[in-house]
Nucleic acid binder design. Structure first.
Lengths: 299, 299
DNA sequence: ACAAATTGATGTGTTTGTTGCATCAATAAT
DNA sequence: ATTATTGATGCAACAAACACATCAATTTGT
């Protein structure tokens, strides 16, 4: 590894190269002229070639010195830039937060958090990535995202999370379905309905959560059909092949062919959490979390 | 001006960021672990923000640290590159030599020197500029060229020169001219000839030199015609309007309409020198001079 | 469950390197 | 000829960085 002269030497040289006068340069550097003279000597000794041509009356740059000066100023400037960049990141005034989000947060929670964040922290860039809950968990562990809007709860020693929203689940039925005659339905009401759900690949975590809910309510969850596409799923419901269950935030996006009713049971909630890795000390991230908390569930 | 941490600190940080272990890093840096620990502390204190997250068992980069590391490696790499570039220039292994040349050197001296130089120093680029002797002198003083092939001698305290060639002067006459009956002519033979010379603007230095020669030979130099263009000048000679005087190296480029004879007098020589500024310490230049010397006059 | 090893941090005396002061020789200006 | 200014240098004083020994915290090995 090549010997790399200290920055004090480099800075001294740059000053002398600008002033072409040791005494004035020494004044600017606030050191003695002799010290500066020795610094330049040391620099040249380390490099192994002269940078300055000096007589007792005049100082001028050698060709190598001219070239080195050009490089040195650029390097010092880059260095200061790097220090400033890192400072901005450390202070959270810039940087980047990679945000994962899934469908249930896509309509309200994530957009609102993002909107608040952008006004408060315009210097911090956000990268939004649509990922399902499972993918977000893996992405968090692998440091591919910094924070994720996902279905909760999530217990993992490496991660921390807060509950952002607990929203009522709704049944989605074809238009004219008997359930729509009531203003709200109970778990009992849907015990014998046919269910159409997204397949495990697409709805993995949600399916697990729903399965859990039904077990705890003493109802069997037997999906009659599976659909891998949301539009297709709603289409199947509208076609009268069965019903499905959606969180409230998505009930406004279902089109005209279906009707919705809330499930009147405190268990039938979908929790959306915000999760991040504990060891991620990014200031930008903590800023994002703070902002996202403003929409936190008051439950 | 922002405080700029020393390179030893920067280098230490880069090492730790790579090893993520203080002891191993200290070994690599060949210093004590405690010294390294303090270096990192000092760096962070200078910057004002932490770069590393350390527990007693683990070291990891903060975001600012990661960013700073990326910048730091690039900066160190640029720095080493700059040192190497300047070294190559200092050693004359790269660089640029601006060469001025005039007509008398254009056919042999300059091309041969350039050819030798390009094989020996392929990394050094040459810039060739056609200039007359007077122009070269001004260009040397003004640092517009590094070295010049010109008519000598040249005495100037700022410049140094070596004699490259001293070539015989030839009379150039129309075909069938009486002087051509002799194998060589004397100054006396041309005492009463009509002379056609280039004008002062084009032939300035050469005219001065010729005038000097004629005075020292006791012969008046009365140009009958002046031409500003070399081809026109030779045309006028071929047309029988007079004779002119050329150095040997150019006698092969005169076309069919004229004849040439050497002037049998040791004074009638044209000296071509290589001149450069004394304070030009460019290694590339001294390399060029060394190569050009190989064609030096043995006189 | 307990001892041994490994982590980074810290207290302390020593050393190395840098500085400022005074002065020098060389050169330019007056 | 005198004076002022240039960068370089000898030397003593100082400050910063260092190695050594040790610490508390934590993991590893048995």
């Amino acid at each position: 590894m090549t010997a790399v002269p200290d920055l004090s030497l480099l800075h001294s040289f740059v000053t002398v190269a600008q002033e072409l006068n040791f005494r004035r340069s020494a004044d600017r550097l606030a050191i003695d002229q002799s010290a500066l003279s020795r610094r330049i000597q040391k620099l040249e000794a380390l490099l192994g070639y002269p940078l300055l041509e000096r007589t007792t009356r005049e100082v001028m740059l050698t060709q190598a010195g001219q070239n080195f000066y050009d490089s040195a100023t650029r390097i010092l400037s880059d260095y200061r830039q790097a220090i400033g960049d890192a400072r901005r990141i450390a202070e959270g005034r810039t940087g980047r937060v990679r945000v994962g989000y899934m469908a249930f947060a896509a309509t309200e929670l994530m957009p609102q958090a993002v909107a608040r964040f952008e006004t408060r922290h315009p210097d911090i860039s956000l990268e939004l990535r649509y990922m399902r809950t499972q993918g977000q968990k893996a992405a968090l562990i692998n440091d591919e995202i910094d924070v994720g809007f996902m279905i909760g709860p999530y217990d993992n020693s490496e991660c921390q999370s807060i509950l952002l929203a607990s929203e009522q689940l709704y049944v989605v039925t074809p238009k004219g379905h008997p359930l729509l005659r009531k203003t709200q339905v109970t778990p009992e009401d849907i015990r014998n309905e046919d269910f159409i759900l997204g397949d495990m690949a697409e709805w993995g975590e949600y399916r697990h959560r729903l399965g859990d809910l039904f077990v705890r309510s003493g109802i069997a969850l037997n999906p009659k059909l599976e659909a891998s596409n949301t539009l297709a799923l709603i289409g199947l419901v509208a076609a009268g092949l069965g019903i499905t269950i959606y969180p409230k935030s998505l009930t406004g996006f279902l089109g005209p062919g279906v009707g919705v009713r809330p499930i009147n049971n405190s268990l039938f909630q979908s929790q959306t959490i915000l999760a991040w890795k504990r060891n991620n000390r990014s200031r930008a991230l903590s800023n994002f979390i703070d902002v996202a908390k403003l929409g936190e569930a008051s439950v």
